[in-house]
Simulated assay, not measured.
Amino acid sequence: MKRTVTRLADGRELFYFDRREDADRSAVDTRDLPPRPPASELRYDPVMDEWIAIAGHRQGRTFLPPSDQCPLCATRPGNATEIPASDYDVVVFENRFPSFSFNLTGTYEDVGGLSEVRPGVGRCEVVSFTSDHDSSFSRLSPEQVDLVLLALADRTEDLSAMPGVEQVFCFENRGAEIGITLPHPHGQIYAYPYVTPRTRQMLASAARYRERTGGDLFTDVLEAERKAETRVVAANEHWTAFVPAAARWPFEVHLYLNRKAADLRELTGEERAAFGPLYTDVLRRLDGLFGVSMPYISAWHQAPVRTGRDLAYLHLQLFSIRRAAQKLKYLAGSESAMGAFVNDVLPEEAARMLRDQG
């Protein structure tokens, strides 16, 4: 892999990840861009014990532009984009409209009440999986998936070393139903200045399980699912894809590495190579369920930078809000107000439907 670092016209970093060592990455961003926005505010919710980012500048972010004006396509005459090169393999760059950043030029004043206010220090990056605007992750070659994983591991390494960063989260939103703003195949990376609520809850559960049983929660979940078999969708030597027994979403699949690892940096070459064929197979099964492109969120759960690393277990959570051909799962009263999920699809039936797509 060849890694090339350059900067965009407003000073943001951009990283090319290429399979070929002779790739020319000398193209320069010639756009006239406005100054970068200041970092967001973080406001503390004392009732929920959570931090909320207030990022008003994101209201102006690019929203579903015509395909010939896509900012994630390679630059061509008449359309200078976020990617100056005329072609590329995988590209990562700082988000122009970030939820977190190190540009501490704003004012972060007391807003009264019991809420503490501080700068939204951190970083947000965009990951373009391919220069092909009309492709999807499910159609990437195993070699391309391997390159994406290398890029995510590289960024996890760099972002974890930045001051104030406590957790690195790599994810993909796909589909208009999910609320994407750009249809080009891409993901994002958030470097949070705190450990997220979901991760805190998972690690607390793992700590209680260890204290109660002496075992590792995630290892035992994986072993139990492999033994039960009924919810396993697909598996190979290094990975297992299964529908969790208490799935929250109509179609939800977790992909576990068959050994414990903390984050993407710890994957071996063999494990990366084995991931692509299995994961893209699961994605194609999802698309085959109802004969439409399934909207989904794909979320890598990695260990925090400094806490709970011995408790965490690298895995991917993939889920769709589509519950039938013409029906979506909306987060209504119970889910949105109480955080109490009600799933309309039996997990064992979801797993069977996905297996049948093979």
Results as ranks from 00 to 15, higher is better:
residue 335 E to H: 07
residue 184 H to S: 03
residue 202 M to Q: 09
residue 164 G to Y: 01
residue 354 L to F: 03
residue 288 G to F: 03
residue 67 S to M: 12
residue 284 R to A: 04
residue 262 A to M: 02
residue 160 S to N: 10
residue 179 G to H: 06
residue 233 V to Q: 05
residue 27 A to D: 09
residue 128 S to I: 04
residue 240 T to R: 07
residue 124 C to N: 06
residue 159 L to M: 15
residue 169 F to I: 11
residue 339 G to V: 10
residue 22 D to Y: 14
residue 290 F to D: 07
residue 301 H to M: 08
residue 249 W to A: 01
residue 143 E to V: 06
residue 323 R to M: 15
residue 73 C to I: 15
residue 299 A to P: 14
residue 206 A to S: 14
residue 54 I to L: 04
residue 250 P to L: 06
residue 180 I to H: 08
residue 166 E to D: 13
residue 83 I to P: 00
residue 198 R to T: 15
residue 177 E to D: 14
residue 185 P to L: 00
residue 305 V to D: 04
residue 79 N to C: 14
residue 170 C to R: 09
residue 161 A to G: 07
residue 98 P to W: 01
residue 139 R to W: 11
residue 24 D to H: 13
residue 351 A to M: 04
residue 222 L to Q: 05
residue 95 N to W: 12
residue 195 V to C: 01
residue 225 E to I: 06
residue 160 S to A: 08
residue 137 F to N: 04
residue 105 T to H: 12
residue 209 Y to G: 01
residue 290 F to I: 05
residue 146 D to K: 11
residue 61 R to Y: 02
residue 143 E to C: 15
residue 64 L to A: 12
residue 18 D to F: 15
residue 174 R to W: 02
residue 64 L to R: 04
residue 304 P to C: 01
residue 329 K to W: 04
residue 341 F to S: 11
residue 230 T to K: 13
residue 124 C to P: 12
residue 195 V to D: 03
residue 196 T to S: 13
residue 170 C to Y: 03
residue 197 P to N: 15
residue 166 E to L: 15
residue 305 V to L: 02
residue 145 V to W: 02
residue 30 T to L: 06
residue 7 R to Q: 05
residue 244 P to N: 02
residue 332 A to R: 10
residue 331 L to A: 10
residue 27 A to T: 03
residue 193 P to W: 00
residue 328 L to H: 11
residue 10 D to C: 14
residue 153 A to H: 01
residue 320 S to V: 01
residue 72 L to W: 02
residue 323 R to C: 14
residue 343 N to K: 06
residue 20 R to E: 11
residue 157 E to N: 11
residue 288 G to K: 10
residue 331 L to N: 13
residue 179 G to L: 02
residue 90 V to F: 00
residue 275 F to V: 10
residue 313 Y to T: 09
residue 287 D to R: 11
residue 218 F to V: 01
residue 348 E to C: 03
residue 146 D to V: 13
residue 8 L to N: 12
residue 148 V to Q: 00
residue 357 Q to E: 04
residue 325 A to L: 05
residue 336 S to W: 09
residue 150 L to D: 11
residue 147 L to P: 01
residue 176 A to G: 14
residue 259 R to M: 15
residue 136 S to R: 08
residue 152 L to Q: 03
residue 125 E to M: 07
residue 245 A to Y: 08
residue 357 Q to S: 12
residue 30 T to C: 14
residue 348 E to H: 07
residue 328 L to P: 15
residue 132 D to S: 09
residue 115 S to R: 10
residue 29 D to I: 12
residue 332 A to F: 10
residue 163 P to W: 09
residue 123 R to C: 07
residue 242 F to M: 10
residue 202 M to W: 05
residue 276 G to V: 06
residue 149 L to P: 02
residue 358 G to Q: 15
residue 214 G to K: 10
residue 323 R to A: 13
residue 104 L to N: 02
residue 131 S to V: 09
residue 106 G to H: 15
residue 267 L to W: 07
residue 166 E to A: 12
residue 44 Y to H: 08
residue 295 P to E: 11
residue 198 R to D: 03
residue 151 A to V: 05
residue 174 R to F: 00
residue 256 Y to D: 09
residue 155 R to N: 14
residue 211 E to Q: 10
residue 281 D to I: 07
residue 123 R to K: 05
residue 77 P to F: 05
residue 225 E to P: 05
residue 153 A to N: 08
residue 16 Y to I: 03
residue 164 G to S: 02
residue 319 F to E: 00
residue 336 S to G: 05
residue 250 P to A: 08
residue 282 V to T: 11
residue 284 R to P: 00
residue 353 M to N: 13
residue 260 K to W: 10
residue 65 P to E: 11
residue 168 V to M: 15
residue 290 F to G: 08
residue 62 T to R: 08
